[in-house]
Amino acid sequence: MTDMETSAPLLGEPLPVELMNTVWADREGVHDALDSPDGARAWLRAVAARTGFMAGSDADVPSAGEFEEPARRLVGLRDALRRLAAEVTGDTRPTDAHASGAGGLGTAVAELNDVASTVPSWSALAWTAGKTPERRTRTGGTPAAAAVSALAEEAIALFGGEDRLRIRACLAPGCVLYFLKDHTRREWCSTSCGNRARAARHYRRHRGTAE
Score class of each variant (00 low, 15 high):
residue 164 R to F: 01
residue 109 V to H: 03
residue 143 P to L: 06
residue 64 A to P: 09
residue 16 P to R: 07
residue 23 V to L: 12
residue 79 D to L: 01
residue 66 E to K: 15
residue 68 E to N: 02
residue 29 G to C: 09
residue 102 A to I: 07
residue 154 E to Y: 00
residue 6 T to F: 08
residue 155 A to S: 13
residue 186 R to P: 01
residue 106 G to S: 13
residue 97 A to Q: 12
residue 14 P to R: 13
residue 185 R to M: 04
residue 144 A to V: 02
residue 159 F to M: 01
residue 64 A to N: 08
residue 182 D to R: 15
residue 12 G to K: 08
residue 115 V to F: 05
residue 119 V to N: 01
residue 193 C to A: 09
residue 127 W to A: 15
residue 81 L to V: 03
residue 28 E to T: 15
residue 199 A to F: 03
residue 177 L to F: 00
residue 99 A to W: 04
residue 129 A to G: 13
residue 96 D to K: 03
residue 14 P to A: 12
residue 69 E to Q: 14
residue 101 G to Y: 07
residue 136 R to E: 15
residue 38 D to N: 07
residue 114 D to Q: 11
residue 43 W to P: 01
residue 138 R to K: 14
residue 59 A to E: 14
residue 145 A to S: 14
residue 55 A to P: 00
residue 45 R to Q: 08
residue 80 A to H: 02
residue 90 G to E: 08
residue 93 R to S: 15
residue 53 F to N: 03
residue 76 G to S: 10
residue 210 A to I: 05
residue 81 L to C: 04
residue 46 A to P: 06
residue 183 H to V: 00
residue 173 P to G: 10
residue 99 A to H: 02
residue 93 R to E: 15
residue 148 V to M: 00
residue 110 A to S: 12
residue 152 A to E: 03
residue 170 C to L: 06
residue 197 A to N: 07
residue 140 G to C: 06
residue 43 W to Y: 07
residue 76 G to E: 14
residue 149 S to F: 02
residue 14 P to Y: 06
residue 91 D to Y: 08
residue 92 T to K: 11
residue 171 L to R: 09
residue 175 C to K: 04
residue 139 T to M: 06
residue 82 R to P: 02
residue 104 G to S: 09
residue 81 L to Q: 01
residue 168 R to K: 15
residue 64 A to I: 01
residue 29 G to R: 11
residue 113 N to D: 12
residue 97 A to D: 15
residue 158 L to N: 08
residue 193 C to M: 05
residue 46 A to V: 05
residue 1 M to W: 11
residue 191 T to Q: 12
